[in-house]
């Protein structure tokens, strides 16, 4: 499925800094994400964790006045280069947003959207791809009888899984998740977390979360951001049980943030 091979990291940021107009949001981030792992980014509101995530597939290019320095490599592509083909980059880097945002189209069309654009499969194979993605997103059994119905009729949790299936439809290498459970109830959240656990066998996942229990449950590695700087990055169990930095400890024990 993934063309990724070799031993280097799936995502590698080097000296990455980011500005919103005059305000600097990120300061020289160095971070390497290993292939087929789940990396959680935690930190207080406004620490730049979403900004970092959205820089990986260049969603921040939309923001007026956004500037950046340094480099981010994604599966060997220089994501930030001017000449980088955004269509290729974004095909290889799927994204799931804070709130489920299905297109006002049928369930089938939502999943087929990316594949159709990138002509990944022929028309005949499209139903197979859609089924495969919906199965991977643990949604197939719930929607297999109503693929032609509008996606907006699904529940919030189902919509979010549909958005994951839609991202998988592009056959990406990397999945970016920007607080994917913040609009969901605990049961829907649990399903997404189980799903993340399944998906990491095939995909490299980076998840931004406000919920530290969630980070502890789903991730292999955890990065703690504060005020635009990467304070600590390490194996999740170590970050949560024996953080090296006092600021990390202060945050995860709930003394601030």
């Amino acid at each position: 499925m993934t063309e990724a091979s070799g031993s280097g990291p799936a995502i590698e940021a080097r000296g990455f800094s980011f500005w919103y107009g005059p305000r600097q949001a990120l300061f020289g981030i160095d971070l390497a994400v290993a292939r087929r792992t789940v990396t959680a980014i935690i930190g207080p509101s406004g620490c730049g964790k979403s900004t970092f995530l959205r820089s990986i597939n260049r969603m921040n290019d939309l923001v007026p006045g956004a500037r950046y320095q340094g480099s981010i490599g994604v599966e060997g592509m220089a994501a930030l280069d001017r000449g980088t083909d955004m269509v290729t980059l974004r095909r290889r880097v799927g994204m799931v947003f804070q709130r489920p945002n299905p297109f006002p189209k049928s369930i089938f069309d939502n999943v087929a959207y990316g594949a159709k654009l990138n002509a990944l499969v022929s028309k005949r194979e499209l139903p197979d791809l859609v089924e495969q993605c919906l199965r991977q997103a643990a949604l197939w059994d719930e929607v297999k009888d109503r693929l032609a119905q509008p996606a907006t009729g699904l529940s919030g949790g189902q919509q979010q899984r549909l958005c994951i299936a839609r991202a998988l439809g592009n056959r990406p290498d990397v999945l970016l998740m920007d607080e994917p459970c913040s609009a969901l109830d605990p049961i829907a959240t649990q399903r997404i977390e189980e799903l993340i656990f399944e998906l990491k066998r095939q995909y490299t996942i980076v998840i931004v979360t406000h919920n530290m229990q969630q980070a502890a449950r789903v991730s292999d590695m955890t990065a703690f951001f504060e005020a635009g700087r990467l304070v600590e990055f390490g194996v999740t169990t170590q970050i949560f049980t024996a953080p090296k930095e006092t600021r990390t400890e202060a945050y995860i024990t709930g003394r601030f943030g």
Binding site: M86, F103, L117, N170
Partner: peptide
């Protein structure tokens, strides 16, 4: 049309002009 739909299409690799026509205008 919610901004989130524009982001969804762009994140799937849709070029801006196609996002504008096939998502924003279409919706």
């Amino acid at each position: 049309v919610p901004h989130s739909l524009r982001e969804a299409a762009l994140a799937l690799g849709y070029p801006r002009w196609r996002t504008s026509l096939s998502v924003m205008v279409r919706t």
